[in-house]
Design a protein around this nucleic acid. Structure first.
Lengths: 165, 165
DNA sequence: CCACACTGTCTCGACGTCAAGAGAGTCGAC
DNA sequence: GTCGACTCTCTTGACGTCGAGACAGTGTGG
């Protein structure tokens, strides 16, 4: 089945036959798919009265395991936002009672963000919802294809995740 | 090589061994990679004094071929933004002299957005820059792997692009 | 020919993000 | 010890996006 990127690539080949636009076949699809996923996630989370950004922060803390706390800096690397954004997110989640800020006992510059009990429940509930939705989207692919796809994507993400930039 | 999603998935398996988090192997990588790509594109375009959103609109018009014009509605489906956003983008591009608004002769509700000569030049220049950068990112993969990856991604994007949602 | 539902674009206010930089605290070299 | 480079978090102001709705124009069924 044809998608929007097929049309996009065909158009470039007509308009700029001098250029090799093959990279777009992969990376434009990644960008567009991510955009579709954002929209789908927004819808899925609205049933739990949760925004995607709230989910990202709460689940990062949930994954950390007891006592469910991380520094703002650790949250930055997991969520790929800037520090100003993270300060703002923590403020709002704290106001809603889903996280709390504690001083870091071992570094007085530092802060620890800890999940409250309610925050933990919300994280657990919405993760289940997200997985259900993602499974539906991936229904197109066989198990073997999914693992093939994951492996190829890992090759592209690893440099970004390991050489900080 | 391990990436951040490997760590994320391992953490979930430890914290929530009752859940099957395999879908994250694919879709979390897509979202994170898109975020890294956004940052990289922002950097690449800054050499051309162009924002990513400007690139998206100008190249959509460029791809349309002479006379390089599309309706705002057509631009929406290509760029995956809302109509309010597109109005705003067209305003700003028009103020910079890169596009102009013309009345649609066949529908008096409608508008046609047309690329100016300068807009066309900027689109052409920055496309070349983007492709160079993307080629560097994809250097990790062989030609066969890239086409395998493109085919798998197409299966996921096609439903979104064809069943409007 | 005239309702009436629909389409295409724009307006508006609220919101989240970013980049740049400030301020407090840490730690190694000397 | 203490100077200076570095790290960590937060502040600020500008900016872009979104969602909801307004409005003009279209075109179809009765």
């Amino acid at each position: 089945m044809e998608d929007e990127v097929d049309r996009l690539v065909a158009a470039w080949r007509r308009e700029r036959p001098d250029l090799d636009v093959e990279p777009l076949e992969v990376l434009s699809r990644v960008s567009r798919l991510a955009r579709h996923l954002d929209r789908a996630r927004r819808l899925a989370f609205s049933e739990h009265q949760l925004e995607p950004w709230e989910f990202d922060v709460l689940t990062a803390l949930r994954r950390a395991g007891t006592p469910y706390q991380l520094s703002p800096g650790q949250l930055l690397t997991q969520t790929l936002v800037t520090s100003g954004t993270m300060t703002n997110r923590i403020d709002r989640l704290a106001k809603k009672g889903l996280v709390e800020r504690l001083p870091d006992p071992s570094d007085r510059r530092g802060v620890l963000v800890r999940l409250t009990d309610e925050g933990r429940d919300r994280a657990d509930q919405s993760l289940a919802g997200l997985l259900a939705q993602e499974r539906a989207i991936l229904g197109e692919l066989s198990r073997a294809q999914r693992s093939e796809l994951a492996a190829l994507l890992r090759q592209l993400t690893a440099p970004f995740d390991n050489i900080p930039g």
